[in-house]
Nucleic acid binder design. Structure first.
Lengths: 159, 159
DNA sequence: TATGGATAGTTGAAAAAGTCAATGATTTAT
DNA sequence: ATAAATCATTGACTTTTTCAACTATCCATA
């Protein structure tokens, strides 16, 4: 591990623009780190036939929270019609299944099949590695702080 | 200020899925906070005929760093052809101008016109407000910590 | 100083993602 | 009962992204 500068395709050369004031914008920093992470994430997930989007849908389906499609759409900041397409594909691959809502038969609860769970667990491991790579500049403690702040920013409004 | 649940269109109702393990994913948190912030940002910038993208291009053009289009593309994680389109429009509106690179005549240095600077300063104020709104769950100190961690994650690799 | 290979910007086409209105089934309120 | 609202779905449409050319210019070196 002598040099890792020219090897990876996503590596930046010098970055003189870091000095621009926009580098202080939270929105910009969020977008940029997310973009960098997405590349690694999608690369890691490609081996499982997943992308960030389908991975997160599978993750929710794999939980024991019995999410409906609408809840997924809201939580993932996606249009309900996009969820339909994502689940259609996962269902076609046998990773996920739809069941009518218990109290509300309009709603459909999405859950992972046994194979979906298995695929998810493997993909999860790969995603975890990708996340480490994306956050390699931070110590473990700092990663924890970052996540804590992000969660607080998202769900601490009004609380 | 009795209830602020039903007023704003972007407000989430309950969010039971916060309990899902994916809520611990940095990538997911980044995407979600960025998505929430983008809505506010674009809403704030719309009055100036800008979106997040054109705003960030204008911001770089307004700096004294004499960025080339390629440098902008790299820094903003965009394809060079997208920069072309963004600058075309800003240039058409008289907010930005292209000048040939001093050492390299292939490159084009993009700089803000006087009007571009003026528009940018006003948009900047609006964007700042949007950012506060997006990060309302955090104290000022925490916002500083968050930005510091994001910058470190982005530019501390190898250093 | 020519020749070849790389790089900056531009164009245009194709794929992917996002937005939005309409629809049928079902629920909730009146 | 009836009316209004909600969930999933479909389809149209727009925007964004991705990628492969192409021209002009730069750089290395024979």
């Amino acid at each position: 591990m002598a040099t890792d500068v020219d090897d990876a395709p996503g590596t930046e050369p010098a970055e003189k623009l870091v000095a621009a004031p926009i580098s202080q914008d939270a929105g910009f920093l969020l977008a940029k780190l997310h973009a960098a992470g997405s590349v690694l994430n999608n690369r890691a997930l490609a081996g499982f036939g997943l992308k960030e989007r389908s991975y997160s849908v599978l993750a929710l389906a794999n939980s024991d929270l019995e999410p409906t499609q609408r809840e997924m759409a809201e939580f993932l900041s996606l249009d309900p019609s996009q969820i339909v397409a994502l689940i259609d594909e996962l269902e076609k691959r046998g990773l996920v299944m739809r069941a009518p809502g218990k109290q509300d038969r309009r709603a459909k609860i999405v859950s992972a099949t046994a194979e979906g769970s298995s695929v998810f667990r493997q993909a999860e491991a790969a995603a975890r590695e990708a996340e480490s790579a994306a956050l390699a500049g931070l110590s473990d403690a700092e990663v924890g702080e970052l996540k804590g702040l992000l969660r607080k920013a998202l769900w601490n409004r009004g609380a």
